[in-house]
Design a protein around this nucleic acid. Structure first.
Lengths: 221, 221
DNA sequence: TAGATTGTTAATCGATTAACAATC
DNA sequence: TAGATTGTTAATCGATTAACAATC
């Protein structure tokens, strides 16, 4: 069981650590030297115990009555999340969402480098969008292999997503963020993070509707 | 405790039901009459037991050896997720991501209606983007109240998100989808769905990096 | 010291998984 | 009937929460 020694840390934990990092960067900018677990908890929207557990997971120790050293904890989290090397990222599908993600991406991740974007629309190919060159779909496999790209972001229509994913992992990609509303099949060694924007809206709508109904009842409408 | 009788169903369950609905619509289009739990499970990326549990939650009964009637189950899920009335939605922040979401939204949700989009950029105000009129930020409270909008989507920069959220819930919004990387404070009666695009990318990168390292070890590099 | 927070351990909670009789 | 799936119940697993001694 678990031959590679993997999957000991949940995706949720990584997400929270990534949040803490951003919060700590802000605190560092404000000149804060120490921070308590409950402060981070309220900022990140969790509990103090959860923050302590996460911090312990990265092997950092805090000090009673002072809390956690901001810059030291930031370093510990960075060591944990990032590697020594820069990881290449490719974006596939330069539509509305793809362009939005390119804009989001620009200059935010010191340890991630967007190496290429791919699209099948001839009008987009060759153009530089948000500082990233748009290449034709046919070159995807070659470029991903040559540039040793390990992370792929899929923002193509649902019907093309699986085909793109297959090309990506066959070319060596190990982590995929998929915005297409389709379940992707990949080998177990390839991590897929599924983001379903349509579903998210329906979730919010469901709870809004129920709350609205309940409120109506209370008033006795 | 729990005076309104709420929060008996998790956000996860709603997300899965929303997925099933989409899958069932496809099956219906293909002319399929019945579907088994394990078929839905493989399509949605879960287990058969999970599908059965979710289906039971909406009060639908299947038949052994035939499975679930596609159109009947679709109806049950729609009854559960949707109400009789159409719910109004507002989008705040017509940047790259906002425009992408507007495009996503167009003509997909029969029970949700995008009533307005808001932005503070004078160049955008008055323009119609993907069939939705862009209004100035100052009119947000008034329009949301008048149109009885209950769902808000926030795609403004992090520093403006809390201010926008406060205006929204004070004007009667009960469900919020927040794409800004900030934790929002709202009353407990207002549901917030947090989507952190930056964090998602870091999650995928983390697992890709670890897998890459492990693969390197195996080869004995 | 008193007070608050830390890391650690035990208890609780929820969700997932497995087991099984009932049904077509 | 035999076979497969259903709804239902019990067992397991994991994560969260509570409790507590140690520390500054």
């Amino acid at each position: 069981m678990d031959p590679g020694g993997n999957i000991m840390v949940s995706s949720k934990t990584i997400g929270r650590l990534s949040q803490y990092r951003r919060l700590l960067q802000n605190l560092l900018g404000d000149g804060r030297e120490f921070v308590f677990s409950h402060e981070l908890a309220t900022m990140a929207g969790g509990t103090a115990a959860q923050v302590r557990r996460d911090v312990m997971a990265v092997g950092h120790l805090g000090s009673p009555s002072k809390g956690y050293g901001v810059s030291a904890l930031l370093g510990s989290i960075a060591d944990y999340l990032d590697g020594a090397d820069i990881l290449g990222v490719a974006l596939v599908g330069v539509g509305n969402l793809g362009r939005a993600l390119l804009a989001y991406f620009v200059g935010r991740h010191p340890t991630l480098e967007l190496k290429a974007a791919f699209d099948c629309d001839p009008a987009k190919i060759g153009r530089v969008i948000h500082g990233c060159r748009c290449l034709p779909m046919e070159e995807m496999a070659r470029v991903v292999e040559e540039e040793r790209i390990k992370v792929g972001v899929i923002t193509v229509p649902a019907e093309d997503a699986q085909r793109v994913a297959t090309v990506l992992w066959q070319a060596g990609v190990l982590g995929i963020v998929n915005f297409a509303p389709v379940r992707l099949w990949t080998p177990a060694s390839v991590h897929v993070e599924q983001i379903d924007l349509t579903t998210v809206l329906e979730q919010a709508a469901f709870f809004a509707r129920r709350q609205d109904k309940d409120a109506g009842k209370e008033v006795g409408r």
